[in-house]
Design a protein around this nucleic acid. Structure first.
Length: 438
RNA sequence: GGAGAGAUGGCCGAGUGGUCGAAGGCGCUCCCCUGCUAAGGGAGUAUAGGCUCAAAAGGCCUAUCCAGGGUUCGAAUCCCUGUCUCUCCGCCA
């Protein structure tokens, strides 16, 4: 969520920066709502002040044993008007909140303007794709031939976009997650956390998945026994959502908190399953385990001082890259353009790993700086030098998506006989195994 | 699932209808005193928003004592609904 003060002081500037993302800000609507809010708020507060004043006098009069009925009558005379105004104020503030919640973050100055992924900028390219002297297979052919990957059975159990791994492949999947966690905790200073995989709507709002992207989430409908007040009394919605990324529960750890300044930066790493309905991506990546309803990911999350978030962003991205380097997987780092960034992000690097089976670089990580956008929604703050609460900055990045890393290892480390060499870095996690299959 | 207790400022904790944004303590900040890893004295110390002001400072005002409703001229305090925490019992990986 953007700072409403920024919209008040520089509406045109905000609209201009949003335009680079392809978003049109309804300036007129905002100005109309603001004018209305000001007017109603002024009237409401004046009446409230008047009521408080008179009520105080009632108390004083009664204290002196005098009759206060005239004062009480005076307050009562404006009670209806006050109640109506208070209702209006709540209404207009709700409208403004909703309007504000629908506006994406402003791109950082270092982000290139662009419309789509075609305009992303390649920042660096590490490693050289291996030259194969045989016809390469993709991970589906490799895994099924080895009898270790079974999409048919997964389909029977759950449906499309689920996968089932067995034996050494399932173990390698687990090994990858363990390896990533160990590197980040032992070498990069992250604290490992285990978190809920089902979260409430407040948490989804905190990181920006709600209200705009509900269709991408798996939702478990639930009703509280609490009944909302009002004419159409209905039970309060207490639905839970499956997390689409550990970013949600981990970042929400600081929701509503004021942390001591000297505890920053907070650095967490979390291995979790992720659930995405992939609505709107029908027909995309239908083969294999590139795009699944359920996948594992090791996520890095940092809460930092605002002054250091861009340094932290570079570091976090480097932490993610280090996994690819240790696995000796060729990749490139892309700076996303304004038009291709996620809703909440001010700046994002995507890491794309080389997949021989597709003869292409494919996204395996996304590292973003959200500045105060998430923190403002969550009211996540720290005490600054002046001992005043100030919004902190949040960042996160995948390091890495485990399923896609497994795909990358399978395809890049395949041998002519259909076996897969185990990367050296993973061998300690695989009981010393050097090869899968054959 | 059953029974009970609780939720107040950074922390502890008082406050059961009026002048309470909230005593007191701790912590923190500044000043004074003290020549010393201590103690004492004084002042200050929530957040968000609105109005005023060229701006800052300042001033005035509104809201917030878990959340949402209600009663009342007036609610931290009374009533209702919920959430969470703790204790005991049951069940359970």
């Amino acid at each position: 969520m953007l700072d409403i003060q920024l919209l008040r002081s520089d509406l045109a500037g905000v609209a201009q920066r949003l335009a680079t993302r392809g978003v049109t800000l309804d300036v007129a609507a905002f100005e109309r709502m603001e004018a209305s809010r000001k007017d109603i708020q002024k009237q409401t507060q004046d009446l409230q002040a008047n009521r408080n004043q008179l009520s105080k006098q009632v108390g004083q009069a009664k204290g002196r044993g005098e009759d206060a009925s005239a004062l009480i009558a005076e307050v009562n005379a404006q009670a209806d008007k006050l109640k109506a105004l208070e209702g209006e104020l709540t209404g207009i503030q709700g409208e403004l909140d909703q309007f504000l919640a629908g506006i994406p973050n402003l791109p950082h100055a270092s982000v290139a303007a662009g419309k789509s992924a075609d305009d992303n900028v390649e920042v660096r390219r590490i490693g050289t794709p291996r030259a194969f002297d045989f016809k390469v297979k993709d991970h589906v052919d490799l895994g099924e031939a080895l009898g270790l990957l079974d999409f048919n059975t997964a389909g029977k159990i759950a449906g499309a976009r689920f996968s089932l791994m067995k034996g050494a492949l399932a173990r390698m999947h687990r090994a990858l997650a363990q390896f990533m966690l160990d590197v980040h905790t032992q070498e990069h200073g992250y604290t490992e956390v285990y978190v809920p995989y089902l979260v409430n709507a407040d948490s989804m709002r905190g990181t920006g998945q709600l209200p705009k992207f509900e269709e991408d989430l798996f939702k478990i409908p639930r009703q509280s026994t609490e009944v909302e007040a009002g004419a159409d009394a209905k039970p309060r919605d207490a639905s839970l959502y499956l997390i689409p990324t550990a970013e949600v529960p981990v970042t929400n750890m600081v929701r509503g908190e004021i942390v001591a300044g000297n505890t920053l930066p907070l650095k967490y790493v979390c291995h979790s399953p992720c659930f995405r309905s992939e609505a709107g991506s029908y027909g995309k990546d239908t083969r294999g385990m590139i795009r699944q309803h359920q996948f594992d990911k090791v996520e890095l999350v940092q809460m930092v001082h605002p002054a250091s978030s861009y340094v932290a962003h570079e570091e976090l991205t480097a932490h993610a890259e280090s996994i690819l380097q240790r696995l000796d997987l060729p990749y490139r780092t892309m700076l996303l353009c304004t038009g291709d960034m996620g809703f909440s992000s001010a700046k994002t690097y995507d890491l794309e790993v080389w997949l021989p089976g597709q003869n292409a670089y494919r996204e395996i990580s996304s590292c973003s700086n959200f500045e105060a956008f998430q923190a403002r929604r969550m009211q996540a703050r720290f005490r600054n030098d002046k001992n005043k609460p100030e919004l902190l900055h949040t960042l996160n990045g995948s390091a890495l998506a485990v399923g896609r890393t497994l795909v990358a290892v399978m395809e890049n480390y395949q041998n002519s006989d259909g076996s897969i060499t185990v990367p050296t870095a993973l061998r300690p996690y695989m009981g010393g195994a050097e090869r899968i299959g054959a």
